[in-house]
Design a binder for these strands. Structure first.
Lengths: 128, 128
DNA sequence: GTAAGCTATATGTAAAGTACATATAGGGAG
DNA sequence: CTCCCTATATGTACTTTACATATAGCTTAC
């Protein structure tokens, strides 16, 4: 990673918070997508990949990624196993389950609907 | 209002929470928009109008509306005044300020960008 | 006249979610 | 040996949200 993942300041400052910054819960579908497309299979790799991702322009917090991955495992959308590394610490490798892929598809349907509604709303506002 | 605004259950249940349910912070731009278009000028009216609104399909919590309106007033995006009612309790009437309109425009720009990103992402997922 | 029900605003509080900090540890470069 | 990068994990304060509840004016039905 090029940079030490600068912390995205928000909360009291940024009024567009949830949608504009980290897109909060969208971390979940992004992780599932990266897994589904073999772009990432462990935490640190997700951290790099997710930060280059379109929907999320701010740096994603490492803590959020590791905790989200654990949550996905608890609900059975991913499974994990340890893989020793030749150079560096061991990695926890994640794999997508069929249930996880189905969950990603549901996310896609929701995001499409909501995304369209947001664009539509934006156009309504632009006409003011 | 036809119905007593059934509470939108989510949290532990609904995994699509933020985006799928109340769209959380989107309450703010929706309120500003309703004000800008003279569709609502006080809390209870926002409650009715916002629930018929496209982006938010779940019932919006009254507490969130009143607190959001107060927040908008603190930041100078709206101003309020009391208006007595011939039939029923007094209403706190809100008006949009120029700063509030500008804020709504900024919201629109953000929502358009994010909405497009979400639709794009949804299509990526659909191809899996 | 009083109880029920609608309009209307407001706040208390527990739970959930996020940001930021920090702890731990393996391995390579100098 | 020290510094830095990779890699995972957790503590915690803060913010946001959901849901409940309190208050009160007015209207309609009994």
């Amino acid at each position: 990673m090029r940079k030490r993942a600068r912390r995205g300041q928000r909360s009291t400052q940024d009024p567009f918070a949830v949608i504009a910054s980290n897109l909060s819960r969208l971390v979940e579908p992004v992780l599932l997508y990266l897994l589904a497309t073999d772009q990432a299979h462990y935490g640190y790799q997700f951290l790099e990949a997710a930060n280059d991702f379109a929907i999320t322009d701010a740096a994603i917090d490492a803590g959020v990624i590791y905790r989200t991955l654990r949550g996905l495992e608890e609900t059975g959308y991913v499974v994990s196993s340890w893989a020793p590394s030749a150079s560096g610490p061991a990695k926890r490798i994640y794999e997508l389950t069929p249930a996880g892929l189905a969950h990603l598809k549901r996310w896609a349907a929701v995001l499409e609907q909501r995304g369209r509604a947001m664009v539509y709303f934006a156009h309504l506002c632009a006409d003011l």
